[in-house]
Design a protein around this nucleic acid. Structure first.
Lengths: 210, 210
DNA sequence: TGTTAATTTTGACATATATCAAGTCGTAAG
DNA sequence: CTTACGACTTGATATATGTCAAAATTAACA
């Protein structure tokens, strides 16, 4: 573990709006988010853009770059962030010395695959309100894991960005949020969100399949 | 490479409709498809199902299981298939001996992440006909890589399965296929598909963003 | 080879979400 | 503190895709 500590170096602070890496950048390292919030997005040739994920403190980012030695998405800070860099070559080297580390890396890569497939399920088969409920529950769970309140947190992204992530327009996101609030399942005011009834939100998913 | 050959064992033949692994099964190995065609699908608690991918000869399947030592989707043979098994523990062991093998595994895992994120883009931001065009072009490309015709091939899956993969109903898939045919971009008759104009199909994507 | 079941196509209609537009609110810069 | 711009909400309307239904075609099986 001392070896791993040695590997990881503070890369520094990223201000709100700044870019950790861009699509096309050479891949050299994975990044651990120490504090703050990121989004990742792909840009199509025709300028279409899709948010592929939101990453919070404690999570690892940059795995898209391994396959072709080039990053395939942009990573943008949604608030001021502190970042650690994990040079990938050296991580692979160390993984050969330390089987548990190797295993851990594989699990992280696979977890990302499973995560993405669950978003495919969401995008492919849920209606607007279900998508939003699933999104909020996912945030809630991840905040809980990190020791923050699972029922009261700040949304660090715009309605537009939520919409892009969920395959919806920002107006639809806004309406769905308002409706969940009318249903007394949540309280939203601007970016601050309170979940009033976790089971209710869960029940919201799968009410009616498409 | 002799060591790798030693690792890989023929697991045998899977008949059309049979299941390679199920969600919940203990993860033990990755599988290389020698011949045939598979689909992978997730099932929601509420019975909703989403096809997460179609895999053809030469591709690797089963990576979803690494993260939790348990498979998170079902893999179903869409025709008679021949499968090779790659025990994952032994692959990891061998990867520690052979850095190029380790690197290769990481690339494969990352390629799956990139692939999934591109499907997210498709599901989140394309309209029906664009999705279908993107789907057909993707198949075309993969057939080309494997040495088959990129412009003439059999669809091994039902309209329903295509629809599930693309987040569309089967009727919509059927209509979109008919429309692409009217536009002289493809020829479909049942499961056999011919691409008449690759550039035309490509142009079809991104005609109008949502 | 005949019979049945599954798949596919096509049409008419319903509906969820997108689009367009106006107004309010909040935050950042001067 | 004021101003201005971006973010958000809400309403009216348009549209792509879903739903339901029937018929045609194909594949599976006895």
């Amino acid at each position: 573990m001392a070896l791993l500590d040695d590997l990881i170096t503070r890369k520094g602070v990223y201000r709100h709006g700044s870019i950790l890496y861009r699509s096309g950048d050479k891949f050299q390292a994975l990044y651990a988010i120490r504090t703050g919030f990121f989004k990742t997005q792909i840009l199509n040739e025709d300028g279409r853009e899709q948010v592929t994920g939101f990453q919070m403190a404690g999570e690892i980012i940059g795995m898209d770059g391994i396959s072709s030695d080039t990053h395939t998405c942009d990573a943008v800070a949604l608030e001021d962030c502190e970042i650690c860099e994990i040079p990938f070559n050296r991580l692979e080297d160390l993984g050969r010395e330390l089987p548990p580390l190797q295993r851990h890396l594989h699990r992280i890569l696979s977890r990302e695959i499973v995560r993405d497939q669950n978003i495919m399920l969401l995008l492919g088969s849920m209606r607007a309100e279900e998508r939003l409920a699933a999104f909020l529950l996912n945030l809630s769970q991840r905040f809980a894991i990190r020791g923050y309140s699972p029922t009261s947190f700040q949304l660090r992204m715009t309605r537009q960005e939520i919409g892009s992530y969920l395959g919806l327009k920002l107006e639809t996101v806004s309406r769905a949020l308002s409706h969940l609030q009318e249903s007394k399942l949540i309280n939203v005011r601007n970016r601050s969100l309170e979940i009033l009834c976790l089971p209710g939100l869960q029940a919201c998913i799968g009410k009616r399949a498409r």
